[in-house]
Design a protein around this nucleic acid. Structure first.
Lengths: 138, 138
DNA sequence: AGATTTTTTGTAATCAAAACGCAAATTTAG
DNA sequence: CTAAATTTGCGTTTTGATTACAAAAAATCT
């Protein structure tokens, strides 16, 4: 995966627009995961809510970003690393949400251990959210 | 934990009302987790949306039910087992959502393995959602 | 049982999040 | 530069969740 907005767009056959470039840069700069609301307030250029929804959906479909479940029933997003192809997400890393600063991080290096399931259950995807306090807030 | 609605209510110092009894019975009968919408359509007596919201909140506060994050950013609920006290939930079991029938189950017997976190991260709560196909849909 | 107090419920109104349709604007290709 | 295709912005609509308040129901006390 490229590490600049334009490269990522080109790599995914997406047209280069201000909104996409800006949102991508937001993800590239911030180390934590962003919600739709975060993006709306983070981007100074004031893009339309609907456009942000659509942009996120597009990125999601292309495998550029992935969903992170929030504990309150919301959703945040973060960049995918190399393994994700269009439509096929592979996320075996742990997500961490700090209950102090409310930021959510991908712990890319920390893989989810093998989880044993009862007979007959077929695993496809897995999502792990650990909550607690992060190094900054400790 | 009692296994009948009235017992559970009494045990938690909650008044006995039709709504509470019905919703509790819903949880006791269904083996899968229920969303607010499920309850709304499942209960034939047609209780008010708002009442259902409040009832769920009450049960949540009392530690009678616990939240299960849904992959689409929604929330479902399921009965707690013994370990939960008022305000203090302890859920170290895996949640499973079948992508065929869309039902979500608590795999009570299948505990979450130890998850290693980077230096400085303090774990408080953890939530694991596995998606795939359940025995019925396999 | 009957009256009083407290809690719970239903209704209506409010608020926010998300989705849709369409016309205008922007990007790419010829 | 023009035309075709995609993307964006706006208005509208739908849906989900919360609040305020009056009515109803449950527990308490004689």
């Amino acid at each position: 995966m490229e590490n600049n907005a334009l490269g990522i767009l080109r790599q995914n056959d997406l047209r280069h627009t201000d909104t996409r470039e800006n949102i991508l840069n937001g993800f590239l700069q911030k180390s934590s995961a962003l919600s739709h609301g975060d993006i709306e307030t983070y981007l100074t250029d004031g893009f339309d809510r609907v456009t942000i929804y659509r942009t996120l959906k597009t990125f999601l479909d292309k495998g550029i970003i992935h969903k992170i479940l929030d504990d309150n029933g919301g959703v945040k997003y973060a960049l995918c690393k190399d393994q994700c192809a269009s439509g096929h997400h592979h996320h075996d890393h742990v997500h961490f949400k700090c209950s102090e600063c409310n930021e959510t991080f991908c712990l890319e290096k920390f893989l989810i251990p093998e989880i044993i399931l009862p007979e007959g259950y077929q695993r496809k995807e897995i999502n792990v959210l650990v909550q607690g306090t992060c190094p900054k807030c400790n």
